[in-house]
Write a protein that binds this DNA or RNA. Structure first.
Lengths: 195, 195
DNA sequence: TGTACATCAGTGAACGCGCGTTCACTGATGTAC
DNA sequence: TGTACATCAGTGAACGCGCGTTCACTGATGTAC
């Protein structure tokens, strides 16, 4: 019927507040005020506060995962693949740091309740690593551990940025971070082969 | 006066519950029940729930930081230094995963309010990196970024373990993780020098 | 060795407030005739 | 083009429950004399 942009305002306000104070630190009243509507109106868009947080998280999570997976399709070679994903992530982060702060804060509450198989960002990285192994570019590695190394390097850098330990945009550092990620995975593979 | 082990029981129960459900997901009543005392008695040990979480976190955080710093004192060479710290961390994690789950969950609530300069785990890693640079073992790097890489590799591995993505003890993987961390830092330094 | 007293970790009931959720309602928009 | 009606995003007040915190109290332990 009516098609105002209220839902978009609510979503934006909620993500911003969740990022700043955590889901539990934000009340329905806070979100309603920030979005410029009454508390009751929120329940026209979400059945509960938990559902709101979960839905906002899941959407961002799946979209990020899908984008990372799409990048893999176009690249040939492990290094290019990782470089592409790291660059993409850094760009996303620079464009909307609050969204990633929200995701980092909320992941532990929400992730266990999400069916993330395949659609998750981790899956995209694991696919890249598994592909490199079967292409003979990379020795055998514990794939999960290698994925952890790649994700850890990038996410911890983003975290340091959120805390002001690292300043300025992340994107210019993407090549360096990608090199670090690749080197880390190769070092893991070297170790595994030896053992 | 009396010296029962009640405080220890409270601390243990609180960390266990906080790790499982997050600080906000646990009530004072929960903790009291788990510790086998009344709610009121909790306030003989902590002035508030927030102070309890903050104090438990700060203690573990500082102790971990101090232990990592101590390791640095005994090692010569960057690689040995990093290996020592990674191994130590993996050992701590294996010994008490709940404590680290608590720390990972609570860090965003508590860290901003803690005076962590110098005593934090990050500081120990940064010291190791800075030392390697001034010893000529390592090219110039953005120290914070290099520290992020090292922490990220180890912490994300621990996180994957908490989520069941990686199973079995972490300690046997410490050498591989340390190699990955060293390779990552060296790759960052290579990039920096080139630029 | 007794006795009186201070201390303090414990109890358990009560308080009160903040918060998520509900509900009767309003009024604007789209649709059927 | 009007008129009657269904729909539904909005309002704002009220509800009620869970939770952190308080408080008067108890009784065991350590200490002074």
């Amino acid at each position: 019927v009516r098609a105002t942009g209220v839902k978009a305002k609510v979503d934006h306000a909620a993500i911003e507040l969740f990022a700043a104070r955590g889901v539990d630190g934000v009340s329905i009243a806070d979100i309603a005020t920030a979005a410029g509507i009454s508390q009751g109106a929120l329940y026209r868009h979400y059945r509960s506060k938990d559902e709101m947080a979960a839905q906002l998280f899941a959407e961002a999570y799946r979209r990020t995962g899908a984008e990372l997976a799409a990048i893999g399709a176009g690249k040939q070679g492990f290094a290019a693949h990782i470089r592409g994903m790291v660059e993409h992530f850094c760009g996303l982060y620079d464009a909307d740091p609050a969204l990633f702060r929200f995701m980092l804060l909320a992941q532990h509450d929400v992730l266990p309740e999400i069916d993330d198989s395949g659609s998750a960002p981790v899956a995209a990285i694991e696919t890249a690593i598994a592909g490199a192994i079967s292409a003979g570019e990379l020795g055998a590695v514990e794939i999960e551990l290698a994925a952890a190394a790649v994700m850890g390097i990038v996410l911890q850098s983003a975290l340091f940025h959120l805390y002001g330990r690292v300043t300025g945009p992340l994107l210019p550092r993407a090549p360096a971070l990608a090199r670090a990620a690749i080197a880390a995975v190769e070092a893991l593979a070297r170790g595994q082969t030896r053992a």
